[in-house]
Design a protein around this nucleic acid. Structure first.
Lengths: 238, 238
DNA sequence: ATTATCTATAGATCTATAGATAATGC
DNA sequence: ATTATCTATAGATCTATAGATAATGC
Protein backbone atom coordinates (compact mmCIF):
# COMPACT_ATOMS: atom_id res chain seq x y z
CA UNK A 1 0.00 0.00 0.00
CA UNK A 2 1.24 3.46 -0.84
CA UNK A 3 0.64 5.56 2.21
CA UNK A 4 1.09 8.73 0.24
CA UNK A 5 -2.08 7.99 -1.65
CA UNK A 6 -4.13 8.58 1.45
CA UNK A 7 -1.99 11.43 2.62
CA UNK A 8 -2.15 13.38 -0.59
CA UNK A 9 -5.58 12.73 -2.03
CA UNK A 10 -5.12 15.37 -4.70
CA UNK A 11 -3.08 12.81 -6.57
CA UNK A 12 -5.88 10.30 -6.72
CA UNK A 13 -7.92 11.42 -9.70
CA UNK A 14 -5.96 14.41 -10.78
CA UNK A 15 -3.98 13.00 -13.67
CA UNK A 16 -5.05 13.63 -17.26
CA UNK A 17 -5.64 10.45 -19.21
CA UNK A 18 -3.85 11.92 -22.21
CA UNK A 19 -0.60 12.49 -20.35
CA UNK A 20 2.15 10.37 -21.86
CA UNK A 21 4.63 10.89 -19.05
CA UNK A 22 3.23 9.74 -15.71
CA UNK A 23 3.56 12.13 -12.86
CA UNK A 24 6.53 10.94 -10.75
CA UNK A 25 5.68 9.11 -7.56
CA UNK A 26 6.81 10.30 -4.15
CA UNK A 27 10.49 10.09 -3.50
CA UNK A 28 11.59 7.71 -0.80
CA UNK A 29 12.31 10.64 1.48
CA UNK A 30 8.77 11.91 0.98
CA UNK A 31 7.30 8.48 1.51
CA UNK A 32 9.30 8.03 4.65
CA UNK A 33 8.24 11.43 5.97
CA UNK A 34 4.60 10.80 5.17
CA UNK A 35 4.61 7.38 6.81
CA UNK A 36 6.35 8.68 9.90
CA UNK A 37 3.84 11.49 10.20
CA UNK A 38 0.87 9.18 9.89
CA UNK A 39 2.31 6.77 12.42
CA UNK A 40 3.08 9.54 14.89
CA UNK A 41 -0.39 11.03 14.45
CA UNK A 42 -2.06 7.71 15.14
CA UNK A 43 0.19 6.94 18.09
CA UNK A 44 -0.31 10.42 19.54
CA UNK A 45 -4.07 10.05 19.37
CA UNK A 46 -4.09 6.59 20.90
CA UNK A 47 -1.52 7.33 23.62
CA UNK A 48 -3.46 10.47 24.57
CA UNK A 49 -6.56 8.35 25.15
CA UNK A 50 -5.03 5.22 26.67
CA UNK A 51 -1.45 5.88 27.75
CA UNK A 52 1.67 3.96 26.83
CA UNK A 53 0.53 0.62 28.16
CA UNK A 54 -3.05 0.99 27.03
CA UNK A 55 -2.03 0.98 23.38
CA UNK A 56 -0.67 -1.96 21.39
CA UNK A 57 1.44 -1.65 18.31
CA UNK A 58 -1.32 -3.44 16.49
CA UNK A 59 -3.71 -0.64 17.51
CA UNK A 60 -1.38 1.91 15.99
CA UNK A 61 -0.79 -0.12 12.85
CA UNK A 62 -4.50 -0.71 12.32
CA UNK A 63 -5.26 2.98 12.70
CA UNK A 64 -2.70 3.81 10.02
CA UNK A 65 -3.60 0.85 7.82
CA UNK A 66 -0.16 -0.75 7.79
CA UNK A 67 1.35 -3.91 9.18
CA UNK A 68 2.56 -3.92 12.76
CA UNK A 69 6.04 -4.88 11.68
CA UNK A 70 6.50 -1.63 9.81
CA UNK A 71 6.45 0.14 13.16
CA UNK A 72 9.59 -1.76 14.08
CA UNK A 73 11.20 -0.61 10.89
CA UNK A 74 10.77 3.03 11.88
CA UNK A 75 10.97 2.77 15.66
CA UNK A 76 13.05 0.65 17.96
CA UNK A 77 10.14 -0.35 20.18
CA UNK A 78 6.93 0.97 21.67
CA UNK A 79 8.68 3.11 24.27
CA UNK A 80 10.76 4.71 21.55
CA UNK A 81 7.60 5.46 19.57
CA UNK A 82 6.13 7.11 22.66
CA UNK A 83 9.25 9.21 23.13
CA UNK A 84 9.21 10.25 19.50
CA UNK A 85 5.59 11.34 19.80
CA UNK A 86 6.64 13.45 22.77
CA UNK A 87 9.67 14.81 20.96
CA UNK A 88 7.96 15.71 17.70
CA UNK A 89 6.00 18.71 18.93
CA UNK A 90 7.96 19.60 22.06
CA UNK A 91 10.21 22.06 20.16
CA UNK A 92 7.11 23.77 18.76
CA UNK A 93 5.57 24.54 22.14
CA UNK A 94 8.91 25.15 23.81
CA UNK A 95 10.18 27.37 21.00
CA UNK A 96 7.07 29.49 20.75
CA UNK A 97 6.99 30.12 24.47
CA UNK A 98 10.70 30.91 24.49
CA UNK A 99 10.17 33.52 21.78
CA UNK A 100 7.19 34.99 23.62
CA UNK A 101 9.18 35.25 26.85
CA UNK A 102 12.12 36.85 25.04
CA UNK A 103 9.82 39.37 23.40
CA UNK A 104 8.16 40.15 26.70
CA UNK A 105 11.50 40.64 28.36
CA UNK A 106 12.62 42.98 25.59
CA UNK A 107 9.42 45.01 25.73
CA UNK A 108 8.88 45.37 29.46
CA UNK A 109 11.44 48.13 29.91
CA UNK A 110 13.44 46.15 32.42
CA UNK A 111 10.46 45.90 34.74
CA UNK A 112 8.83 42.52 34.19
CA UNK A 113 5.64 41.68 36.05
CA UNK A 114 4.45 38.24 37.11
CA UNK A 115 1.27 38.61 35.12
CA UNK A 116 3.13 39.74 32.01
CA UNK A 117 5.47 36.76 32.15
CA UNK A 118 2.59 34.35 32.74
CA UNK A 119 0.61 35.79 29.85
CA UNK A 120 3.56 35.17 27.56
CA UNK A 121 4.07 31.65 28.91
CA UNK A 122 0.48 30.47 29.19
CA UNK A 123 -1.47 32.31 26.52
CA UNK A 124 1.05 31.38 23.85
CA UNK A 125 0.71 27.73 24.67
CA UNK A 126 -3.08 27.69 25.01
CA UNK A 127 -3.37 29.43 21.64
CA UNK A 128 -1.00 26.98 20.03
CA UNK A 129 -3.07 23.99 21.07
CA UNK A 130 -6.46 25.56 20.50
CA UNK A 131 -5.63 26.97 17.09
CA UNK A 132 -3.31 24.19 15.99
CA UNK A 133 -6.00 21.73 15.00
CA UNK A 134 -6.79 18.22 16.13
CA UNK A 135 -3.20 17.03 16.21
CA UNK A 136 -2.13 19.76 18.61
CA UNK A 137 -5.12 19.09 20.87
CA UNK A 138 -4.17 15.42 20.94
CA UNK A 139 -0.62 16.35 21.82
CA UNK A 140 -1.88 18.53 24.65
CA UNK A 141 -3.82 15.63 26.15
CA UNK A 142 -0.94 13.24 25.46
CA UNK A 143 1.51 15.45 27.35
CA UNK A 144 -0.87 16.18 30.20
CA UNK A 145 -1.52 12.51 30.70
CA UNK A 146 2.20 11.83 30.74
CA UNK A 147 2.88 14.67 33.17
CA UNK A 148 1.30 12.85 36.09
CA UNK A 149 3.58 9.85 35.67
CA UNK A 150 7.19 9.44 36.73
CA UNK A 151 8.42 8.50 33.24
CA UNK A 152 6.48 11.33 31.65
CA UNK A 153 7.92 13.80 34.14
CA UNK A 154 11.40 12.79 33.03
CA UNK A 155 10.46 13.57 29.43
CA UNK A 156 9.18 16.92 30.65
CA UNK A 157 12.60 17.59 32.18
CA UNK A 158 14.28 16.73 28.93
CA UNK A 159 12.17 18.89 26.66
CA UNK A 160 10.78 21.70 28.78
CA UNK A 161 13.32 22.60 31.44
CA UNK A 162 14.85 25.43 29.37
CA UNK A 163 11.56 27.32 28.81
CA UNK A 164 10.42 26.76 32.35
CA UNK A 165 13.72 27.99 33.77
CA UNK A 166 13.47 31.01 31.48
CA UNK A 167 10.04 31.76 32.95
CA UNK A 168 11.40 31.27 36.44
CA UNK A 169 14.24 33.69 35.78
CA UNK A 170 11.78 36.42 34.75
CA UNK A 171 9.57 35.69 37.76
CA UNK A 172 12.62 36.11 39.99
CA UNK A 173 13.26 39.55 38.52
CA UNK A 174 9.59 40.45 38.98
CA UNK A 175 9.70 39.24 42.59
CA UNK A 176 13.23 40.14 43.75
CA UNK A 177 12.49 39.65 47.45
CA UNK A 178 11.04 36.16 46.98
CA UNK A 179 12.80 32.94 47.84
CA UNK A 180 13.47 30.45 45.05
CA UNK A 181 11.37 27.99 46.98
CA UNK A 182 8.28 30.19 46.81
CA UNK A 183 8.77 30.77 43.10
CA UNK A 184 9.20 27.09 42.29
CA UNK A 185 6.13 26.11 44.30
CA UNK A 186 4.21 28.82 42.51
CA UNK A 187 5.31 27.38 39.19
CA UNK A 188 4.29 23.94 40.44
CA UNK A 189 0.74 25.24 40.97
CA UNK A 190 0.69 26.90 37.56
CA UNK A 191 1.78 23.83 35.67
CA UNK A 192 -0.65 21.62 37.55
CA UNK A 193 -3.53 23.86 36.55
CA UNK A 194 -2.27 23.96 32.98
CA UNK A 195 -1.94 20.18 32.74
CA UNK A 196 -5.44 19.76 34.12
CA UNK A 197 -6.64 21.98 31.30
CA UNK A 198 -4.69 20.23 28.58
CA UNK A 199 -5.83 16.81 29.78
CA UNK A 200 -9.28 17.73 28.54
CA UNK A 201 -11.05 14.95 30.40
CA UNK A 202 -14.57 16.38 30.46
CA UNK A 203 -14.72 16.45 34.25
CA UNK A 204 -15.32 20.20 34.63
CA UNK A 205 -18.11 19.95 32.07
CA UNK A 206 -20.04 17.48 34.16
CA UNK A 207 -19.15 19.02 37.50
CA UNK A 208 -20.35 22.43 36.38
CA UNK A 209 -23.46 21.03 34.74
CA UNK A 210 -22.31 22.22 31.35
CA UNK A 211 -21.37 25.78 32.37
CA UNK A 212 -17.70 25.13 31.61
CA UNK A 213 -16.27 22.97 28.84
CA UNK A 214 -12.92 21.18 29.13
CA UNK A 215 -11.97 22.07 25.60
CA UNK A 216 -12.71 25.77 26.05
CA UNK A 217 -9.10 26.90 26.22
CA UNK A 218 -10.05 30.52 25.46
CA UNK A 219 -12.06 30.58 28.69
CA UNK A 220 -8.99 29.34 30.55
CA UNK A 221 -6.74 31.81 28.78
CA UNK A 222 -9.03 34.67 29.84
CA UNK A 223 -8.55 33.79 33.51
CA UNK A 224 -5.41 31.83 34.11
CA UNK A 225 -2.53 34.33 34.00
CA UNK A 226 -4.48 36.81 36.13
CA UNK A 227 -5.44 34.13 38.63
CA UNK A 228 -1.94 32.72 38.96
CA UNK A 229 -0.23 36.13 39.10
CA UNK A 230 -2.38 37.09 42.07
CA UNK A 231 -1.47 33.78 43.68
CA UNK A 232 2.24 34.52 43.37
CA UNK A 233 1.81 37.98 44.86
CA UNK A 234 -0.05 36.52 47.83
CA UNK A 235 2.99 34.43 48.81
CA UNK A 236 4.89 37.55 49.84
CA UNK A 237 6.47 37.22 53.26
CA UNK A 238 6.25 39.91 55.86
CA UNK B 1 -0.57 -20.22 52.48
CA UNK B 2 -2.26 -18.36 55.27
CA UNK B 3 -2.09 -14.71 54.39
CA UNK B 4 -2.96 -13.74 57.92
CA UNK B 5 0.37 -15.06 59.08
CA UNK B 6 2.22 -12.30 57.31
CA UNK B 7 -0.36 -9.69 58.17
CA UNK B 8 -0.25 -10.37 61.87
CA UNK B 9 3.33 -11.30 62.69
CA UNK B 10 2.68 -11.20 66.43
CA UNK B 11 1.14 -14.63 66.03
CA UNK B 12 4.25 -16.18 64.58
CA UNK B 13 6.29 -17.08 67.62
CA UNK B 14 4.02 -15.85 70.33
CA UNK B 15 2.37 -19.09 71.44
CA UNK B 16 3.53 -20.91 74.53
CA UNK B 17 4.62 -24.47 73.87
CA UNK B 18 2.84 -25.63 76.97
CA UNK B 19 -0.57 -24.42 75.83
CA UNK B 20 -2.91 -27.34 75.38
CA UNK B 21 -5.58 -25.42 73.52
CA UNK B 22 -4.18 -23.83 70.37
CA UNK B 23 -5.04 -20.21 69.83
CA UNK B 24 -7.90 -20.18 67.29
CA UNK B 25 -6.96 -19.32 63.75
CA UNK B 26 -8.45 -16.33 61.96
CA UNK B 27 -12.09 -16.60 61.15
CA UNK B 28 -13.02 -16.69 57.50
CA UNK B 29 -14.29 -13.14 57.71
CA UNK B 30 -10.94 -12.05 59.10
CA UNK B 31 -9.03 -13.99 56.49
CA UNK B 32 -11.13 -12.52 53.75
CA UNK B 33 -10.64 -8.99 55.08
CA UNK B 34 -6.90 -9.47 55.43
CA UNK B 35 -6.53 -10.91 51.94
CA UNK B 36 -8.60 -8.13 50.42
CA UNK B 37 -6.54 -5.52 52.19
CA UNK B 38 -3.26 -7.01 51.03
CA UNK B 39 -4.49 -7.28 47.47
CA UNK B 40 -5.78 -3.71 47.45
CA UNK B 41 -2.53 -2.43 48.96
CA UNK B 42 -0.45 -4.16 46.32
CA UNK B 43 -2.74 -3.08 43.48
CA UNK B 44 -2.81 0.50 44.77
CA UNK B 45 0.96 0.64 44.83
CA UNK B 46 1.38 -0.86 41.38
CA UNK B 47 -1.42 1.13 39.74
CA UNK B 48 0.01 4.34 41.21
CA UNK B 49 3.33 3.61 39.54
CA UNK B 50 2.20 2.11 36.23
CA UNK B 51 -1.50 2.82 35.69
CA UNK B 52 -4.29 0.35 34.94
CA UNK B 53 -2.76 -1.03 31.76
CA UNK B 54 0.80 -1.04 33.04
CA UNK B 55 -0.01 -3.61 35.70
CA UNK B 56 -0.85 -7.27 35.16
CA UNK B 57 -2.83 -9.40 37.53
CA UNK B 58 0.28 -11.54 37.83
CA UNK B 59 2.19 -8.48 39.06
CA UNK B 60 -0.37 -7.95 41.78
CA UNK B 61 -0.50 -11.62 42.72
CA UNK B 62 3.28 -11.87 42.91
CA UNK B 63 3.52 -8.82 45.13
CA UNK B 64 1.01 -10.36 47.54
CA UNK B 65 2.43 -13.87 47.25
CA UNK B 66 -0.75 -15.53 46.03
CA UNK B 67 -1.90 -17.11 42.81
CA UNK B 68 -3.31 -14.92 40.09
CA UNK B 69 -6.54 -16.82 40.07
CA UNK B 70 -7.34 -15.77 43.60
CA UNK B 71 -7.72 -12.23 42.30
CA UNK B 72 -10.61 -13.45 40.20
CA UNK B 73 -12.19 -14.96 43.26
CA UNK B 74 -12.30 -11.56 44.96
CA UNK B 75 -12.68 -9.27 41.97
CA UNK B 76 -14.58 -9.58 38.72
CA UNK B 77 -11.70 -8.43 36.57
CA UNK B 78 -8.79 -6.02 36.49
CA UNK B 79 -10.96 -2.96 35.89
CA UNK B 80 -13.07 -3.89 38.86
CA UNK B 81 -9.95 -4.23 41.01
CA UNK B 82 -8.90 -0.75 39.89
CA UNK B 83 -12.30 0.67 40.77
CA UNK B 84 -12.20 -0.99 44.17
CA UNK B 85 -8.79 0.52 44.87
CA UNK B 86 -10.28 3.87 44.01
CA UNK B 87 -13.39 3.24 46.08
CA UNK B 88 -11.63 1.98 49.22
CA UNK B 89 -10.19 5.26 50.40
CA UNK B 90 -12.43 7.72 48.56
CA UNK B 91 -14.89 7.93 51.48
CA UNK B 92 -12.00 8.69 53.83
CA UNK B 93 -10.78 11.72 51.93
CA UNK B 94 -14.26 12.81 50.91
CA UNK B 95 -15.67 12.37 54.41
CA UNK B 96 -12.88 14.21 56.18
CA UNK B 97 -13.12 17.16 53.86
CA UNK B 98 -16.88 17.24 54.15
CA UNK B 99 -16.58 17.40 57.94
CA UNK B 100 -13.95 20.11 57.70
CA UNK B 101 -16.13 22.18 55.37
CA UNK B 102 -19.16 21.72 57.62
CA UNK B 103 -17.17 22.80 60.64
CA UNK B 104 -15.80 25.80 58.83
CA UNK B 105 -19.28 26.80 57.73
CA UNK B 106 -20.56 26.50 61.26
CA UNK B 107 -17.70 28.52 62.71
CA UNK B 108 -17.41 31.36 60.21
CA UNK B 109 -20.35 33.29 61.56
CA UNK B 110 -22.21 33.25 58.27
CA UNK B 111 -19.35 35.05 56.53
CA UNK B 112 -17.23 32.44 54.79
CA UNK B 113 -14.05 33.51 53.02
CA UNK B 114 -12.44 31.89 50.02
CA UNK B 115 -9.24 31.27 51.91
CA UNK B 116 -11.07 29.77 54.86
CA UNK B 117 -12.97 27.35 52.66
CA UNK B 118 -9.82 26.40 50.77
CA UNK B 119 -7.90 25.79 53.98
CA UNK B 120 -10.61 23.39 55.10
CA UNK B 121 -10.68 21.65 51.73
CA UNK B 122 -6.97 21.49 50.92
CA UNK B 123 -5.16 21.33 54.25
CA UNK B 124 -7.38 18.51 55.47
CA UNK B 125 -6.56 16.43 52.44
CA UNK B 126 -2.84 17.17 52.37
CA UNK B 127 -2.61 16.24 56.05
CA UNK B 128 -4.51 13.03 55.47
CA UNK B 129 -2.10 11.82 52.83
CA UNK B 130 1.05 13.06 54.47
CA UNK B 131 0.24 11.73 57.90
CA UNK B 132 -1.59 8.62 56.74
CA UNK B 133 1.47 6.55 55.97
CA UNK B 134 2.69 4.86 52.83
CA UNK B 135 -0.71 3.53 51.80
CA UNK B 136 -2.27 6.97 51.78
CA UNK B 137 0.63 8.42 49.81
CA UNK B 138 0.21 5.64 47.26
CA UNK B 139 -3.48 6.40 47.03
CA UNK B 140 -2.69 10.07 46.45
CA UNK B 141 -0.45 9.22 43.50
CA UNK B 142 -2.92 6.60 42.27
CA UNK B 143 -5.76 9.12 42.22
CA UNK B 144 -3.67 11.91 40.71
CA UNK B 145 -2.53 9.66 37.90
CA UNK B 146 -6.11 8.65 37.24
CA UNK B 147 -7.32 12.25 37.30
CA UNK B 148 -5.66 13.10 34.00
CA UNK B 149 -7.47 10.30 32.18
CA UNK B 150 -11.03 10.20 30.94
CA UNK B 151 -11.92 7.01 32.81
CA UNK B 152 -10.32 8.28 36.00
CA UNK B 153 -12.22 11.55 35.72
CA UNK B 154 -15.46 9.58 35.68
CA UNK B 155 -14.45 7.88 38.94
CA UNK B 156 -13.72 11.33 40.33
CA UNK B 157 -17.28 12.37 39.45
CA UNK B 158 -18.66 9.32 41.19
CA UNK B 159 -16.74 9.69 44.43
CA UNK B 160 -15.89 13.36 44.83
CA UNK B 161 -18.67 15.43 43.31
CA UNK B 162 -20.47 15.90 46.64
CA UNK B 163 -17.46 17.37 48.51
CA UNK B 164 -16.46 19.49 45.57
CA UNK B 165 -19.97 20.87 45.15
CA UNK B 166 -20.02 21.57 48.87
CA UNK B 167 -16.82 23.59 48.49
CA UNK B 168 -18.29 25.36 45.48
CA UNK B 169 -21.41 26.29 47.44
CA UNK B 170 -19.31 27.94 50.14
CA UNK B 171 -17.18 29.73 47.55
CA UNK B 172 -20.37 31.10 46.00
CA UNK B 173 -21.41 32.54 49.34
CA UNK B 174 -17.94 34.02 49.81
CA UNK B 175 -18.09 35.54 46.33
CA UNK B 176 -21.75 36.47 45.86
CA UNK B 177 -21.15 38.67 42.83
CA UNK B 178 -19.20 36.02 40.93
CA UNK B 179 -20.54 34.00 38.05
CA UNK B 180 -20.69 30.23 38.43
CA UNK B 181 -18.37 30.01 35.46
CA UNK B 182 -15.61 31.93 37.25
CA UNK B 183 -15.98 29.82 40.34
CA UNK B 184 -15.84 26.53 38.48
CA UNK B 185 -12.78 27.58 36.49
CA UNK B 186 -11.16 28.64 39.72
CA UNK B 187 -11.85 25.21 41.17
CA UNK B 188 -10.42 23.68 38.01
CA UNK B 189 -7.13 25.48 38.67
CA UNK B 190 -7.13 24.43 42.32
CA UNK B 191 -7.66 20.77 41.61
CA UNK B 192 -5.04 20.76 38.86
CA UNK B 193 -2.46 22.12 41.27
CA UNK B 194 -3.54 19.65 43.92
CA UNK B 195 -3.32 16.67 41.56
CA UNK B 196 0.13 17.78 40.43
CA UNK B 197 1.15 17.69 44.08
CA UNK B 198 -0.39 14.31 44.83
CA UNK B 199 1.17 12.78 41.71
CA UNK B 200 4.51 13.10 43.45
CA UNK B 201 6.56 12.57 40.30
CA UNK B 202 9.83 14.15 41.39
CA UNK B 203 9.76 16.74 38.64
CA UNK B 204 9.79 19.83 40.89
CA UNK B 205 12.73 18.32 42.77
CA UNK B 206 14.88 18.19 39.68
CA UNK B 207 13.58 21.43 38.18
CA UNK B 208 14.36 23.35 41.35
CA UNK B 209 17.72 21.69 41.81
CA UNK B 210 16.60 20.11 45.06
CA UNK B 211 15.12 23.25 46.62
CA UNK B 212 11.63 21.74 46.55
CA UNK B 213 10.67 18.13 47.09
CA UNK B 214 7.60 16.54 45.50
CA UNK B 215 6.72 14.70 48.66
CA UNK B 216 6.90 17.81 50.84
CA UNK B 217 3.16 18.24 51.27
CA UNK B 218 3.64 20.51 54.31
CA UNK B 219 5.44 23.01 52.05
CA UNK B 220 2.48 22.89 49.68
CA UNK B 221 -0.01 23.21 52.52
CA UNK B 222 1.79 26.32 53.75
CA UNK B 223 1.24 28.06 50.42
CA UNK B 224 -1.62 26.60 48.50
CA UNK B 225 -4.82 27.94 50.09
CA UNK B 226 -3.36 31.44 50.28
CA UNK B 227 -2.15 31.30 46.68
CA UNK B 228 -5.44 30.00 45.30
CA UNK B 229 -7.62 32.32 47.37
CA UNK B 230 -5.78 35.34 45.94
CA UNK B 231 -6.31 33.85 42.48
CA UNK B 232 -10.06 33.65 43.00
CA UNK B 233 -10.22 37.24 44.24
CA UNK B 234 -8.33 38.42 41.14
CA UNK B 235 -11.10 37.11 38.86
CA UNK B 236 -13.49 39.80 40.09
CA UNK B 237 -15.18 41.62 37.22
CA UNK B 238 -15.53 45.36 37.10
C1' DA C 1 -21.27 -27.34 54.50
C1' DT C 2 -19.10 -23.19 53.24
C1' DT C 3 -15.40 -20.48 51.93
C1' DA C 4 -10.49 -19.60 50.72
C1' DT C 5 -6.92 -20.95 47.86
C1' DC C 6 -4.53 -23.51 44.32
C1' DT C 7 -3.82 -26.45 39.83
C1' DA C 8 -4.37 -26.88 35.15
C1' DT C 9 -5.34 -24.92 31.06
C1' DA C 10 -7.76 -22.58 26.97
C1' DG C 11 -7.70 -18.95 24.06
C1' DA C 12 -6.27 -14.64 22.88
C1' DT C 13 -2.89 -11.25 22.17
C1' DC C 14 1.44 -9.00 22.14
C1' DT C 15 6.29 -7.80 20.93
C1' DA C 16 9.91 -8.62 18.15
C1' DT C 17 12.73 -10.79 14.49
C1' DA C 18 14.06 -13.08 10.08
C1' DG C 19 13.53 -12.97 5.64
C1' DA C 20 10.75 -12.09 1.24
C1' DT C 21 8.72 -8.79 -2.02
C1' DA C 22 7.82 -4.35 -4.11
C1' DA C 23 9.00 0.18 -5.04
C1' DT C 24 12.36 3.93 -5.95
C1' DG C 25 17.35 5.41 -7.13
C1' DC C 26 20.98 6.00 -10.27
C1' DA D 1 21.43 -1.02 -5.14
C1' DT D 2 18.75 0.88 -1.57
C1' DT D 3 14.73 1.54 0.96
C1' DA D 4 9.79 0.72 2.14
C1' DT D 5 6.56 -2.66 3.13
C1' DC D 6 4.72 -7.23 3.92
C1' DT D 7 4.61 -12.47 5.25
C1' DA D 8 5.43 -15.82 8.49
C1' DT D 9 6.31 -17.00 12.87
C1' DA D 10 8.61 -17.70 17.63
C1' DG D 11 8.21 -17.01 22.19
C1' DA D 12 6.29 -14.84 25.89
C1' DT D 13 2.39 -13.17 28.45
C1' DC D 14 -2.08 -12.21 29.80
C1' DT D 15 -6.95 -12.80 31.23
C1' DA D 16 -10.28 -15.74 32.61
C1' DT D 17 -12.59 -20.18 33.74
C1' DA D 18 -13.37 -24.97 35.43
C1' DG D 19 -12.60 -27.78 38.82
C1' DA D 20 -9.71 -29.70 42.80
C1' DT D 21 -7.92 -29.19 47.52
C1' DA D 22 -7.47 -27.19 52.06
C1' DA D 23 -9.15 -24.65 55.71
C1' DT D 24 -12.92 -22.95 58.76
C1' DG D 25 -17.99 -23.39 60.41
C1' DC D 26 -21.48 -25.52 63.07
Amino acid sequence: MDLTQTTFPEQKGGMSKTATVKRPRRTKAEQRAASLEQILDAAEYLFSKHGLDGVTLRDVAERVGIHTTLLHYYFKDKTNLFEEVFARRAPVTSGRRMVALDQYEASCGGKPTVEGALHAFLDTDLDLYYQGGEGMMNYAAFGARASNTVEGAVLMDLHFDPVVLKLVSILKRALPDYTDEDIFWGYHFVTGALMNTLANTGRIDRLSGGICRSSDFPAVKKRMAKFMAAGFLALKHK
